[in-house]
């Protein structure tokens, strides 16, 4: 699965991808409810990690009376949806007011510099994608960033950032080693 796509600007989900089956089962379970477009896109994103146009086309064929245009309109309107592939780990820096006044912008800049990455982008090695998010609701721990589900609080000192990221590189190296050991 990890190597299914080498081009990070294009999606490469095969039409026979087993996740389509899961998505179909979900659609069937909510089909009789009203207003399910957003719910279906949310489920698709949960399964695939993002909702590229080809998945949207598939959904449009699956749902009656919903055009790709409508789905595309929804997926580009709401900030939750990603149309391009995401990094292995998602970094979200909170730019809510409480974090901003306590220096969250410096965290974003440090990450950009360290990973050579734009906000909304994905790093060359596909390890991280960087997002600036709305308030995460942990204002008393400001400034805050999240990597996947882990919260890193009170990041006054941006020098901690390389150290935090190293943890994920190390984890990934260990995984690789384990895999190659298994292969051997």
């Amino acid at each position: 699965m990890a190597n299914e796509c080498n081009n990070r600007n294009e999606s490469c989900i095969r039409p026979d991808d087993p996740r389509y089956k899961e998505l179909k089962a979900y659609i069937d379970s909510v089909r009789d409810q009203q207003g399910i477009n957003i719910m279906v896109l949310q489920e698709a994103q949960r399964l695939f990690g993002y909702v590229p146009l080809e998945v949207q086309k598939w959904i449009s064929l699956e749902l009656d009376d919903v055009s790709v245009g409508e789905l595309y309109g929804i997926s580009t309107f709401y900030s939750q949806f990603n149309l391009t592939k995401q990094g292995k780990h998602k970094i979200s820096v909170c730019l809510g007011t409480a974090c901003y006044v306590k220096g969250a912008q410096a965290i974003v800049e440090a990450l950009q510099q360290h990973l050579d990455i734009e906000v909304g982008g994905i790093s060359e090695d596909e390890m991280f994608s960087l997002e600036a998010t709305r308030c995460l609701g942990c204002c008393s721990l400001a400034p805050v960033m999240m990597i996947d589900d882990d919260v890193y609080a009170k990041l006054y000192d941006t020098k901690q950032i390389p150290e935090i990221l190293d943890k994920y590189y190390l984890e990934s190296e260990l995984e690789h080693e384990m895999e190659s050991e298994v292969d051997a």
Binding site: L95, G96, T97, A98, R134, C135, G137, C139
Partner: peptide
């Protein structure tokens, strides 16, 4: 849909 940055009472 608590959206105001800096407010978390609803949460």
């Amino acid at each position: 849909d608590e959206g105001d940055p800096g407010a978390f009472m609803d949460r």
